[in-house]
């Protein structure tokens, strides 16, 4: 498993709807803020890249020191963004695909309002399990 990884889902309206620090490194408060900052900065790159390809998985699109940002854009333009320091691209791709499936399930829940925060603890547990498995 990667020592550092931060995963967020950004809705089509640029609102973060899910965040998780999934790395095995010791949690540091300022690091978490830095991660958010890097991911936020990468959103512009995503916007430019998303329309140049038909693939959902955009691979590594941005880097900051030794941290890399990988992004997966769903058909509804929800962005799954992962900040990581591992180089395992296949694992990341599988991770994104499975989280995408989970996200669709959340979206199909009639009591979930699209674009609102994902509060489901079930979703959270599953995402963390996937992170342990693939990253």
């Amino acid at each position: 498993m990667a020592s550092t990884a931060c995963f967020i889902i950004v809705s089509r309206n640029d609102i973060p709807i899910y965040e998780a620090e999934v790395g095995s490194a010791v949690k540091k408060e300022d690091a978490a803020q830095q991660h958010q900052f890097i991911l936020h900065a990468a959103l512009d790159v995503v916007q430019d890249l998303a329309w140049t390809t038909s693939a959902m998985f955009l691979k590594a699109i941005d880097r900051f020191n030794d941290l890399v940002v990988s992004v997966y854009v769903t058909a509804g333009h929800t962005r799954l963004m992962l900040l990581h320091d591992s180089r395992n691209e296949d694992g990341i791709k599988s991770f994104f695909q499975e989280v995408h499936e989970l996200y669709i399930k959340v979206l199909l829940n009639p009591l979930y309002l699209p674009g609102s925060r994902i509060t489901s603890s079930h979703f959270d547990t599953k995402v963390r399990a996937l992170a342990r498995k693939y990253l």
Binding site: K105, L108, N109, Y112, H122
Partner: peptide
């Protein structure tokens, strides 16, 4: 109830 999960508000 497929897909359904009750949020805290309900």
């Amino acid at each position: 109830v497929d897909f359904v999960e009750l949020p805290d508000t309900c």
